[in-house]
């Protein structure tokens, strides 16, 4: 028994799983499934700083990763689930592009991210070049979810996925000095999700619907 997975293999596996969750999110028709996928993606993202570390991770890095994992993989999905429960069960409108077309665009986005990463050249920290295509593809997935979905909670999912992509890009920066900054950014995002959750609750109460088409009266 000599084949023990190295951290590099672990990182590649995590990055591969993240891209799979991206595509699954683009094709997901049910919101409960989307929340579960976002939670899984959050857990994977929490593991990335440890897996990306070259050597034995110290206690600091493990603690930071644990905090990020709890926020991304547990607290934020719980906030989403809470918001989802407050909404009446309704048939979700089909996205503007259709689920299959969205997943296809996700694959094109991934290819585009690989191409852009290649064009930008190798960064001083090669880890950035490694996570860059997946991070950009996740950002693209988030943007795609926001513009293609016709329901506000699904748009919030898109925002969270977008933030997950950004977190992945920033993961190689996990250093002791920048911890407080990363944490404040994460808390900011948590508050943003909380505030958007409240807004969705109000939208449902005022419009008796959370369809984007129903909240489009402000035009020129």
């Amino acid at each position: 028994m000599t084949s023990i997975l190295s951290t590099a293999d672990g990182l590649n596996a995590a990055l591969g799983l993240i891209i799979i969750t991206d595509l699954a999110l683009l094709g997901a028709e049910r919101q409960r499934l989307s929340i579960r996928l976002i939670a899984n993606q959050g857990v994977l993202l929490g593991l990335v700083p440890v897996l990306a570390y070259n050597g034995t991770p110290d206690m600091y890095l493990i603690a930071v990763s644990a905090i990020f994992l709890i926020i991304k993989g547990v607290i934020l999905p719980l906030l989403l689930r809470r918001t989802h429960r407050q909404l009446p069960s309704q048939q979700l409108p089909k996205p503007y592009l259709g689920y299959s077309a969205c997943a296809l665009l996700g694959i094109i986005g991934f290819a585009l991210s690989l191409w852009i990463g290649g064009r930008l050249g190798i960064a001083a920290n090669p880890l950035f070049s490694q996570v860059f295509p997946i991070g950009m593809a996740t950002i693209f997935t988030g943007l795609l979810l926001i513009v293609s979905r016709k329901e506000v909670l699904s748009q919030l999912f898109g925002y969270l996925v977008l933030e997950n992509g950004i977190f992945l890009l920033g993961a190689p920066m996990a250093e002791q000095e920048s911890f407080w900054l990363e944490l404040s950014i994460l808390l900011d995002i948590m508050v943003a999700v909380f505030v958007m959750g409240i807004a969705i609750h109000h939208i449902n109460r005022a419009f008796h619907s959370t369809y984007v088409d129903h909240i489009a009266s402000l035009k020129d």
């Binding site: 926001i146 958007m196 807004a199 909240i215 489009a216 402000l218």
Partner: peptide, 9 residues
């Protein structure tokens, strides 16, 4: 409310 949602998002 509509303006707030657009602003937030």
């Amino acid at each position: 409310l509509e303006a707030t949602w657009k602003y937030l998002m």
